[in-house]
Amino acid sequence: METTANAEQLVAKAQAQNLSFYYSDYQALKSINMTVHEKKVTALIGPSGCGKSTLLRCFNRMHDLYPGNRYEGGIRLHPDNTDLLSPDVDPIEVRMRISMVFQKPNPFPKSIYENVAYGLRVRGVNKRVILDEKVEEALRDAALWDEVKERLDDLASNLSGGQQQRLCIARALATEPEMILFDEPTSALDPIATANIEELISELKEKVTILIVTHNMQQAARVSDFTAYMYLGELVEFGATDQIFIKPQKKETEDYITGRFG
């Protein structure tokens, strides 16, 4: 398995470099170094409070929304080779290129169509022809088109939980981002909806780079190419998923994965 992973050409999409993060005085991330590879799925696992969501939210500068938060170190975004945490970088520009799907489905109180079109409208796209085309494409990519094509003007809140989450994925896809961040996207969903989303994530990596936080180790094993195990704000081990799950290098990783801890 390792040989096949090595045989492919790996291209770095984003690299955390000595990344630390503080909620006011509390240090939530401690000098993280990690590379997210292009068009691969990278999973962040670890027990509650280990900082995996905090790390994820650094990638689209979500922490900028709240006062008192502070980054140290950087995240290099490629191909620009720019530190996206730099004060010169506009967080809105970052978010335009790096989308996010949240833990709980959070469709806007609008129609299905307008939910998907939101990101495009925010970018000033208002031509109906273009919107129609992009909305359909995004809904198809999110495996939702067939279920909603007859009722695009219905309120998004009328959809089931799993459909709402796929709608949120469609919303994130519509603007053709380079990378999508998933923050425990299936934790509020039933097993069937979870299976659908996992399948979708595996398909989406053809198009975009994916970074996913998950509580569920089996999910990480199923969907990801690379896995990072975090504990108490530190990156304990990072590597190809097969290697992390079959022969982890560190004792702590093994304890967590085998369920002896966490």
Partner: peptide, 12 residues
């Protein structure tokens, strides 16, 4: 969560 969803799409 709704606001975050909007900001995450690059909205001002």
């Amino acid at each position: 969560s709704l606001r975050e969803g909007s900001y995450a799409m690059g909205a001002t």
